[in-house]
C-alpha cells in the first residue's frame, strides 16, 4: 500500500511487452486487442509472449501460496528484454509489482528477478499518461460515463488518477463520479464466491450509486470489477424484464480506442 507515489517513468520506448491477464485472454480479448491497437498507434511495437497465462493472484489471495508461486514462476521468464510490461489491469499489475517479490522471498535469485520485473510493470492508463503522453481527438457525439477503479489499481498502482486524466482528456465525454467511488465493488476474486451475500450487498450498492449518476456507461480498467458490476446490473435487468442493458460496461482500452477514432478490423 501507499506504493503509488514517486514512480520513475521511462521515455517512450520502441517496444513493450503486453501481459494481458487470464480474464482478458479468455473473457474480454477485445480489451487486449484494443490495448495493442492503442499502443501500436503510438508507434510502439507490442510483444505478446505467448507462454503467458495468469499472474497467480487468484491462488495468492485465496491463501494458496504454493499454487500461486507455481503459476507466477512461469511468468517470470517471459520478459527477458528490458522493455516495459504493460498490463490492462491494475490488479494484476499490482500483483506482479508489489506481491511477486514477497512471494519469492525464499529464493533470492527469483525475488531479485521479480523485483526487477516489477520495476517495469505498468498499468495501461498509467503507461498511456506518463510514458506515451496520450492525446487524440475525441468522437463528436457526447456521452456520459462513470469510472470504476479497482481497489488494487487505486491503492497499489495509483492509477485512478491516470484513468481519470485519460477520460477528462476527451472533450465530448462527460465524466461523472458516483457516491463512494473509492469503495470496493465486492468482487475480491474468490471472495465473490466464498461470501456471495456480502459480495452481493456491496455490488448492489455499487450499481445503485453508478445508476444514480445517470451515466450511460461504466468504464473500468479492470475486468474483474467490470464483470461483477455489469453482471450484477444485467441480472437486475433480467429480473426487471429490460431487453437492453441499463448499465453497460466497457474496458478503458476499448472505450479509448472507440472514442479516438480507432478502426475496427
Amino acid at each position: 500500500m501507499s506504493n503509488t507515489s514517486h514512480r520513475h517513468y521511462p521515455a517512450k520506448p520502441g517496444d513493450v511487452y503486453l501481459f494481458a491477464t487470464c480474464l482478458v485472454d479468455q473473457f474480454a480479448p477485445e480489451a487486449g486487442l484494443d490495448t495493442v491497437r492503442l499502443l501500436e498507434r503510438e508507434g510502439i511495437r507490442v510483444h505478446f509472449p505467448e507462454a503467458q497465462t495468469c499472474c497467480g493472484q487468484p491462488a495468492y489471495s485465496s491463501g494458496y501460496p504454493d499454487e500461486a508461486r507455481a503459476v507466477a514462476r512461469q511468468q517470470l521468464d517471459l520478459f527477458p528484454r528490458p522493455w516495459p510490461v504493460v498490463v490492462p489491469s491494475g490488479s494484476c499489475a499490482a500483483m506482479i509489482r508489489h506481491h511477486y517479490p514477497s512471494l519469492f522471498a525464499d529464493e533470492p535469485t527469483l525475488a531479485e528477478r521479480a523485483r526487477e520485473l516489477g520495476e517495469r510493470v505498468f498499468e495501461l492508463s498509467e503507461f498511456l499518461v506518463h510514458v506515451v503522453g496520450f492525446q487524440h481527438n475525441d468522437a463528436v457525439e457526447p456521452c456520459t460515463v462513470a469510472l470504476h477503479t479497482s481497489c488494487h489499481a487505486r491503492r497499489e498502482m495509483g492509477s485512478h488518477t491516470t484513468s481519470t486524466a485519460l477520460l477528462r482528456g476527451l472533450p465530448n465525454v462527460k465524466l461523472v463520479e458516483q457516491a463512494h467511488a473509492e469503495e470496493c465493488c465486492g468482487f475480491g476474486g474468490t471472495f465473490a464466491i466464498r461470501h456471495p451475500d456480502i459480495s452481493e450487498a456491496m455490488a448492489d450498492d455499487k450499481v445503485q450509486s453508478l445508476r444514480a449518476t445517470g451515466a450511460g456507461l461504466v468504464v473500468s480498467a479492470d475486468c474483474g470489477c467490470l464483470f461483477n458490476i455489469v453482471g450484477h446490473a444485467a441480472k437486475q435487468d433480467e429480473r426487471a424484464g429490460n431487453a437492453k442493458p441499463t448499465l453497460p460496461g466497457e474496458h478503458l482500452a476499448t472505450f479509448l480506442w472507440r472514442r479516438t477514432g480507432g478502426e475496427r478490423s
Binding site: Q26, P29, G32, I193, D204, G231
Partner: peptide
C-alpha cells in the same frame, strides 16, 4: 454458475481468445 450467478449473469468465454485474435 453457483454463487456467481446468484446475483450476476453468467460469465461466458469469448469465441476467440486474445492469443487467437492477436
Amino acid at each position: 454458475q453457483g454463487a456467481w450467478t446468484a446475483s450476476r449473469t453468467p460469465l461466458v468465454p469469448a469465441p476467440k481468445r486474445l492469443r487467437d485474435l492477436l
